[in-house]
Structure formats: structure tokens, C-alpha cells
Design a protein around this nucleic acid. Structure first.
Length: 442
RNA sequence: GGAGAGAUGGCAGAGCGGUCGAAUGCGGCGGUCUUGAAAACCGUUGACUCACAAGGUCCGGGGGUUCGAAUCCCUCUCUCUCCGCCA
């Protein structure tokens, strides 16, 4: 059974309302402010905002024209029905002729509307989310703010080695055979290496569910509509593996399928906050990456990750972001890894995010920080595309806010655990993993 | 992959081509009654566009027939049943 090419995307785009990442009235009423914020995000085409407003003006104009004509057609059609019922044939025929005239103008209008609509969507979708006011200015990772540090950087024993050597020494991951089976960047975990993965996943999930997150196992491929709704398309088109025969995308993160649970839904206010967690493998093409960054487990095409996702009331999302940051921080503390938390600057944050905190752990043998988690508030950017709304106390429809974070991504956690805990006798595992791993040491 | 049936409002479930944005039931909300609750009764209850109203749009998606489509036709997707294949 084959998925039809663009069907999924049409589900979203066919409607008048479209997926604005930013509501049109915001663009209209706060144009200068929007452009200023886009600049913080290093967005280079502020003129798109004007283009959008112009297109929307056109759309409204055509729509109004279309609606008034359609109204006449509708009224006349009803009239015809009545006339026919009364046997007044001639009058009915006259009305039919009139309708015929109006309809001639309707068809070209419809075409224009569809065209403007499509142009509008194509441009709208290019605008990233606006950064929150807390986001610092800046262009590169150097401009990110370190907001907190924790844990202790260990003094490694003489002869300490990076994780790719430890992996060989303890026979934990076979990169060569993974490359034979699939390609480079597809690790083949083996023996204790495989069990460590499983232990971490299970520990993370237990930790998350204990905090009230509901566990899911989602599909690992998604359709186009889902990839659009969470903002991977069109922004990250080239970064996802694409099964073209069925037009499915391999998920780059569980965020995509899990957040899409709430696509096209109106949730009850009392159901909020919705807290979800999911393990999934993540597939990333990492096109354009190269160099020493890709050594060992530092950067791979397939990796394991446990994600946390929340859908909340707008007023609460800022506080929930802090709560999620703390949640992840405690997890790193439980793993006894040296970490730091960064508030990303405008230029370094993701397309869809309003504010992002990155977590990095210190890889003692490589003497560098590795990103292991990214916790973001998307505010209404995703939920606007998703159309995930709730009715507030006044009965007004509002978009919910969505947030997510890694809790946690495994490969670099494993890299640090191996490197930082290496001893002559073996690799000492943090206490929280003992019961999952069945041993306190590799 | 083959054959058949189906897709309607929060859910269930009607709907001769005109009076259908859609019967009815459940649920929700408001009220009467009650010390309170239940029951009963009465009323109310989809979304989008739109400053508001008017108007327009939406009965899985797209297209067609017609003056007029939830209703007819084509097509895609999905669901269910049976067969085949299979972890």
C-alpha cells in the first residue's frame, strides 16, 4: 500500500487557516517587534514579513469578493428550489441563467485564491519561531550563556584513554561491523555495551514516569503531515532519512511522533499539563558534519534517546520549562557526571524554539563538553501547526504551548560514563544503574 | 497483495439531490426541584474565517456532475471483515 505523494501535507495546507507558525495578526500588529526578534534569531529575510502581509491582504480581498458572489449563488439556488416546487418553471430558468453568469466569475476567483493561499503558506512556513525575551543576542555557540554548572570533573588515572579506545578494550561497540551492515555512524552495540544501552533507557524511563510522565512507544517513521506539524519540514528536510516509496520519514527524535499525538485536537483544560515520555532510536543524516567531532560515539546516524514532552497552558509554559530543566539536571546529578547548562543565544537555537537550554557533560578524556540534552519551549509555534487547542475559562479557544527535552540522549552519556569512570580495574558505573545493569562495573 | 463493507458533531448513530451545520441518544453546561446529591423535567451545547454582524467554509482528503451535493460519479487515504504472505 503506497502513500500518495503529498496527500499528508495537504491535510494541513488545504484549509483556509493554514499552519501559521506565527499568527498573522501578530505579524500585522507588531511588525517592527517581529522583525527585531527575527533579527535576534539571525534570520536574514525580514522582508518576508511584509510579503506575508501583502499576500494576506490579497487573500482577504479575493475571499471577500468570492464570498459575496457565493452568497448570491446560494440564495438564488434556494429560490430555484422553491420556484420548482411551485411549478414556476420560467422564473426558475431565469434564476438559473443568472447563477450561470455569477459562476463564471467564481471559478477564476477560486483559482486566484488557491494560488495566493499557497504562496502565503510557502512563505509563512519559512519563518522561524520568535525568541523569548530571555534569549541572549549572539550568532555562534560562543555567545551562549552558561547558566549553571554542577558535578566534578574527575582527575583521570595515568594512561586514561578516550571512549573509542575503551569501547575496543571492553568490546562494547563494533563500529566496523555496523558500517558493514549499514554504513558509518550506525553503531553495533555488543554484550555489555548493548546491556548498558538497555539499562540507561530503562533507568531514564523509570525516572521520567516517576515524575508523572506517561510512557509511550511511538512509530519510528512519520508521514509528511507529522513532520510539518512539529517543524522538521521544511526546515530540516535534508537531515531526515526519507523512505520515498511510502513517503515516510525516519524520526530524528521521538518529539515528532509523540507531539503529533495531539495534532488536530482540542484538549480539555483540566487534562493539562499533558506529560509524555518515550524511548526511540533517532535517525539523523548529519549531512555536512565532519572532522574530529564524529569520532566514536560523539556523532552517529542512529542513536538511542529518551524524550520528555509536555503540552501545557500558555501562562504556565515558562515555569514548566524551568521544571523540565531541573528534571534533567537531577538526572545528570544522579549519574554523577560533570555538567553545565547553557542558555542558547538567538543564532544557535533551533528553528522552532522560543527558548532553549542545552545540557553538556564534560568528557574528561577528550577534554571537551558534549551536548546530551536540549530542553526547549516552543510556546505556540508547534501547537499552532499541530492545531492543538483548549478552551479557556471564558470559553475562548487558545493554543496550548508545547515543550520538550532529551532525558537523555545516550551515546555521549555513554562516552562520558566510560571516560570519566575508567579505573585500572574497570569502568565504575553510577549507583543508580547497578540494579538495571546487574553489576556495578564493566 | 486479493475480495467485500465502511468513514457524519466529544462519543454513539440517523440522514428521498433543495427546507441539513445536520434527527435522536449519551455526555457536557445552565436552570427548576432538594438541606445537599441522585432521579425527573426545562433549556443549552461543533469548528474555521470575520473587528462585530452579515456572509462564507467544513459531514475522511482531492476532483467531477448539478441552478443546488452529507446525499450521485471518479480518485486517494484510513478503518473493519475474509483470503494470501509473514516476525
Amino acid at each position: 500500500m503506497k502513500a500518495c505523494g503529498h496527500h499528508a501535507a495537504k491535510l494541513i495546507f488545504a484549509r483556509n487557516t493554514g499552519p501559521y507558525m506565527l499568527p498573522l495578526n501578530v505579524l500585522r500588529n507588531n511588525t517592527a517587534e517581529v522583525k527585531r526578534k527575527l533579527a535576534v534569531k539571525q534570520f536574514k529575510q525580514p522582508e518576508l514579513v511584509d510579503r506575508i502581509i501583502a499576500l494576506d491582504d490579497d487573500r482577504k480581498k479575493f475571499q471577500a469578493e468570492f464570498d459575496t458572489t457565493q452568497a448570491k449563488v446560494n440564495a438564488a439556488s434556494k429560490e430555484i428550489g422553491k420556484l420548482m416546487a411551485q411549478g414556476r418553471k420560467e422564473e426558475a430558468e431565469a434564476q438559473k441563467a443568472a447563477v450561470g453568469e455569477w459562476k463564471l466569475t467564481l471559478d477564476p476567483l477560486k483559482e486566484k485564491m488557491a494560488q495566493v493561499e499557497k504562496e502565503l503558506q510557502d512563505v509563512l512556513v519559512l519563518l522561524p519561531n520568535l525568541p523569548s525575551n530571555k534569549v541572549p543576542e549572539g550568532r555562534t555557540p560562543e555567545d551562549n550563556l552558561v547558566v549553571r554548572e554542577g558535578g566534578e570533573i574527575p582527575a583521570l588515572p595515568v594512561g586514561a584513554v578516550p571512549h573509542w579506545d575503551l569501547i575496543k578494550q571492553y568490546d562494547l561497540v563494533d563500529f566496523e561491523t555496523g558500517a558493514k551492515i549499514t554504513g558509518s555512524g550506525f553503531p553495533l552495540y555488543k554484550g555489555k555495551g548493548a546491556k548498558l544501552q538497555r539499562s540507561l533507557v530503562q533507568y531514564f524511563l523509570d525516572y521520567n514516569t516517576a515524575a508523572g510522565y506517561t510512557e509511550y512507544i511511538p512509530p519510528f517513521m512519520v508521514n509528511e503531515a507529522s513532520a510539518f506539524a512539529t517543524g522538521q519540514l521544511p526546515d530540516k528536510e535534508g537531515q531526515m532519512y526519507h523512505a520515498t516509496e511510502d513517503n515516510f520519514y525516519l524520526i530524528p527524535t521521538a518529539e515528532v511522533p509523540v507531539t503529533n499525538i495531539y495534532r488536530d485536537t482540542i484538549v480539555k483544560q483540566e487534562e493539562l499539563p499533558i506529560k509524555m515520555t518515550a524511548y526511540s532510536p533517532c535517525f539523523r543524516r548529519e549531512a555536512g558534519s565532519f572532522g574530529k567531532d564524529v569520532r566514536g560515539l560523539n556523532r552517529v546516524h542512529q542513536f538511542e534517546k529518551v524524550e520528555i514532552i509536555q503540552i501545557v497552558e500558555p501562562e504556565k509554559s515558562a515555569a514548566v520549562l524551568d521544571e523540565m530543566v531541573e528534571h534533567v539536571e537531577k538526572l545528570l546529578q544522579a549519574l554523577a557526571l560533570p555538567y553545565r547548562i547553557l542558555l542558547l543565544c538567538g543564532g544557535d537555537m533551533g528553528f522552532t524554539s522560543a527558548i532553549t537550554y542545552d545540557f553538556e557533560v564534560f568528557s574528561a578524556a577528550q577534554q571537551r563538553w558534549l551536548e546530551v540534552s536540549s530542553v526547549s519551549n516552543f510556546e505556540s509555534y508547534q501547537t499552532n501547526r499541530l492545531k492543538c487547542r483548549f478552551k479557556d475559562a471564558e470559553g475562548k479557544m487558545q493554543f496550548t504551548h508545547s515543550l520538550n527535552g532529551s532525558s537523555l540522549a545516550l551515546p555521549r552519556i555513554v562516552a562520558c560514563l566510560l571516560e570519566n569512570n575508567q579505573t585500572e580495574k574497570g569502568i565504575v558505573l553510577p549507583e543508580v544503574l547497578h540494579k538495571y545493569f546487574g553489576s556495578n562495573m564493566i
